[in-house]
Structure formats: C-alpha cells, structure tokens
C-alpha cells in the first residue's frame, strides 16, 4: 500500500517538477531508493512552489513511516466512487 502511495505521489512530483523546474525524475527509483527520494524531496521544496512543496511533504511523511496527509481536494470528495473503490473493481475481473 505504501509503495503504491509513494508511486502515486511521485507521479505528481514528476509532473510538477517537469513543469516548474524542467527536471525529470525516476519515479520507480524513488520508491526503491530512499536516499534518492529524499534528495528529490529537498529539491522540490527548494523550488518554492506550493504544489511541489505539498507533494514533497506527503512523500516525506511516507518515508518517515507516517500516513501521507490527505489531499484537500474538494473534487475528490465530491465525486464518488473513490479511486480505491475504482481500483477494487479490477480485482479478479476486468469488466
């Protein structure tokens, strides 16, 4: 679960870093290598971008063994079913 969350947050970081800092990161390596992940987090926070900082802190929480702060996304809360529910759809069946 933690790895899945890490990858999901890293994907957000990937997009934002490419847009804001024109930097490309390795999402899978972030999930595998803590040192690399922490370097990316540090770099993301240094950019002074709110979205980058928020995603970096969420990833930091996971690295520290804490649950990642929930995204305060009104859109996500207003749109059932949740992403988890959607994922459960694909257990043992595609359709």
């Amino acid at each position: 679960m933690a790895d899945t969350e890490k990858t999901a947050i890293a994907a957000h970081l990937y997009v934002a870093l490419r847009r804001v800092a024109n930097r490309v990161i390795d999402i899978e390596w972030m999930a595998q290598n803590e040192e690399y992940a922490r370097a990316i987090i540090k770099f993301a926070v240094e950019q002074g971008n709110e979205e980058l900082a928020r995603q970096a802190l969420r990833y930091q929480a996971l690295l520290d063994g804490e649950p990642a702060p929930r995204e305060a996304s009104a859109r996500a809360e207003a749109t059932p079913p949740s992403a988890d529910t959607v994922k459960k759809r694909y257990i043992g069946t595609l359709r």
Binding site: V86, K87, K88, R89, Y90, I91, G92, L94
Partner: peptide, 9 residues
Amino acid sequence: GYGRVAFPP
C-alpha cells in the same frame, strides 16, 4: 496476484 490485487487497465 490475480484475484487478490487490482490489475487496473
């Protein structure tokens, strides 16, 4: 993992 984890398209 079939039947235990999700295989999202």
